[in-house]
């Protein structure tokens, strides 16, 4: 069973999860939990909170596997999106305000991400970093603050001293540009 699962596609694993095969969830965990935890921790700056988020994402996949639609992207992207959403919810909750203040202070001190060390696949990392770096400064900063900082576009606007509309447009335009840039990578990516 174990061997079969290791060769199974993510979509098949999710089908097995729908039939309550815990081994299938374990395999999804083996493939993706590290990346999910990495993202949650990066956004939350707190390992314990990040663990809670990852746990929640997996329990949600277990209870509602039908929410994953293989036609709309890979399981990894789906789980990362879930993780990011939950992490941001955590961040915006009252209780984590203090951690957030501490985090913002340290973010300011360590500005500039070294994506190369953090991105799962080095070849992809290279492309992603290039695509990000090639963006106009305003777009790149808006995306980084929103995604990795977990800030709303309104907060980003305040932080950068820009109009909200400008920040909205920059995020959208920047993501669009990166998508075009990363098209070859996106096309080549499998489930894992």
């Amino acid at each position: 069973m174990r061997t079969d699962l290791q060769g199974a596609s993510d979509a098949n694993l999710v089908m097995a999860i729908a039939r309550y095969h815990e081994d299938a969830l374990a395999e999804v965990y083996r493939r993706h939990a590290g990346a999910l935890f990495g993202l949650a921790k990066r956004v939350l700056w707190d390992a314990a909170l990040a663990e809670e988020v990852v746990q929640e994402v997996f329990l949600r996949l277990w209870s509602s596997p039908e929410r994953f639609d293989p036609d709309r992207g890979s399981l990894r992207s789906f789980l990362l999106a879930q993780t990011h959403g939950r992490a941001v919810d955590q961040l915006r909750s009252e209780s984590s305000r203090r951690q957030r203040e501490a985090r913002d202070a340290s973010t300011a001190a360590t500005a500039g991400y070294d994506l190369e060390h953090e991105v799962f696949d080095l070849a992809v990392a290279e492309h992603v970093r290039d695509a990000l770096v090639e963006l106009p400064e305003g777009q790149r900063r808006a995306i980084e603050l929103a995604y990795f900082g977990g800030h709303s576009y309104r907060e980003v606007a305040t932080m950068l001293g820009e109009p909200e509309g400008t920040v909205k447009s920059r995020i959208r335009a920047g993501l669009g540009k990166m998508h075009a840039q990363l098209a070859p990578v996106l096309g080549a990516r499998g489930d894992e």
């Binding site: 935890f37 992207g73 999106a81 991105v119 696949d121 992603v128």
Partner: peptide, 21 residues
């Protein structure tokens, strides 16, 4: 399309902590 890009941005590696599973 935006989500795909976000997926790449957030796709950092790393190990999940022991005991979480």
């Amino acid at each position: 399309a935006h989500r795909e890009v976000a997926g790449l941005l957030g796709n950092a590696g790393g190990e999940a902590p022991a005991g979480l599973w």
